[in-house]
Structures are given as structure tokens and as C-alpha cells.
């Protein structure tokens, strides 16, 4: 999605704050004060910098990332679609707006191995429900979609979240 947000300017202190929080926020009564002590700056400066990174999109949000298996979403299907290039942006926005789609991207095809250019992640309680939801996406895409597939995950091999540095 094009964003009108200002281009972020990050200084060395912002980067130290990112490194200090990339493993997570401290679970103590006053977490921002704790970080301020680590970085040797004021607690209100920590809050100001975090707010600025939220405003500029460097931080998407501050919160919890559930393991979807552990909270009952045991079926996870990556649905992939070969959508008419002339219509993909208009339709991608509509697929992304469906409440059961957690991620939705346009990506390059890798012909001849991979004809798909739209990826929509669907999480559900079981595969039957995933495939019912994928059928809803198929209806929405109609004749703009030539072919599609669902790639179910069968194991999490690694999940550490991303690291910036440090």
C-alpha cells in the first residue's frame, strides 16, 4: 500500500533502542524507564522515540505475536493466485480486506516453475475451513484469476522473529 508517511530518519540512539527491544519489551513494571537506564537517556525520550518510530512506520505496532498453532489456528494455508496484471492491484486490496486474510502481497512470478503473483495467507481451525475461505477468494477474483493453489504448512522449522543488528 503506498504510504504518505514521512521517510524515517533514524539516529544512533534510535538504532540502539531497536537493538535493545528486538528480543522484546522488558516485562517489568516500568519497561520504558528500564530501557532508558540501559541507553542512558530519559524515560520520556524513550517514549518520544518509540512514538516517532510508530508514526513513521519503522515500528508497525507494539504488542504480542501469537503462535497461531498454540491459540487454535492449526491450519495455515498460503493461497497463491495467478491474477491478471491489469487487475491485480484493484483485486489485491479487496482480498486483503477479507477478515480471514492475515497477509496479502503481490510478488513476482517465477516462470515456468511458479505462475502465481498474488499471495494471501489464510489461518483457520482446520483445512476444510481454509479451503472454504480460499473458495471465497476464488469467487471474488472470478475470471481475473487463471489458476491458484494452497500451500499448507506442515511444520514450523524456525520462528525467531527478525533481528536488526547487535
Amino acid at each position: 500500500m503506498p504510504e504518505a508517511k514521512p521517510e524515517p530518519v533514524l539516529d544512533a540512539t534510535d538504532r540502539r533502542l531497536m537493538v535493545a527491544t528486538q528480543a522484546g519489551l522488558p516485562r517489568v513494571s516500568r519497561p520504558y524507564e528500564w530501557l532508558a537506564g540501559e541507553l542512558d537517556i530519559g524515560a520520556d525520550e524513550v517514549l518520544r522515540r518509540l512514538q516517532r518510530m510508530l508514526d513513521s512506520g519503522v515500528i508497525r505496532r507494539i504488542g504480542a505475536v501469537p503462535n497461531h498453532y498454540a491459540i487454535g489456528y492449526t491450519a495455515n494455508g498460503m493461497s497463491v493466485w495467478d491474477v491478471d496484471d491489469a487487475r491485480i492491484d484493484e483485486l489485491g486490496v479487496r482480498v486483503g480486506a477479507l477478515e480471514f486474510v492475515t497477509h496479502c502481497y503481490r510478488r513476482p512470478r517465477r516462470l515456468p516453475d511458479w505462475p502465481y503473483n498474488l499471495f494471501a495467507m489464510v489461518h483457520s481451525q482446520d483445512r476444510a475451513e481454509v479451503s472454504a475461505r480460499v473458495a471465497e477468494i476464488a469467487t471474488l477474483l472470478g475470471n481475473a484469476c487463471r489458476t491458484h493453489d494452497i500451500l499448507y504448512s506442515t511444520a514450523i522449522l524456525k520462528k525467531t522473529g527478525l533481528r536488526i543488528a547487535g
Binding site: V58, I59, R60, R61, A64, N67, A70, K159, G161
Partner: peptide
């Protein structure tokens, strides 16, 4: 705090904290 620690320890939550959009910080994903 007690419940949050437990949820992280049991991997019900994989993470708790800022979610960085790495491209906005010059990185790639």
C-alpha cells in the same frame, strides 16, 4: 506480567514488543 511471562515461556506467544518494519529502517525482508 505473570501471565505474559508464562505465555512466552510456553511459546503461546512467540514475541512481545515492538514489531519493526525493517524496510522502513533501511533493511530488507
Amino acid at each position: 506480567l505473570r501471565r505474559l511471562d508464562s505465555l512466552l515461556e510456553h511459546r503461546v506467544l512467540t514475541r512481545f514488543g515492538p514489531m519493526f518494519q525493517i524496510e522502513r529502517a533501511g533493511g530488507a525482508f
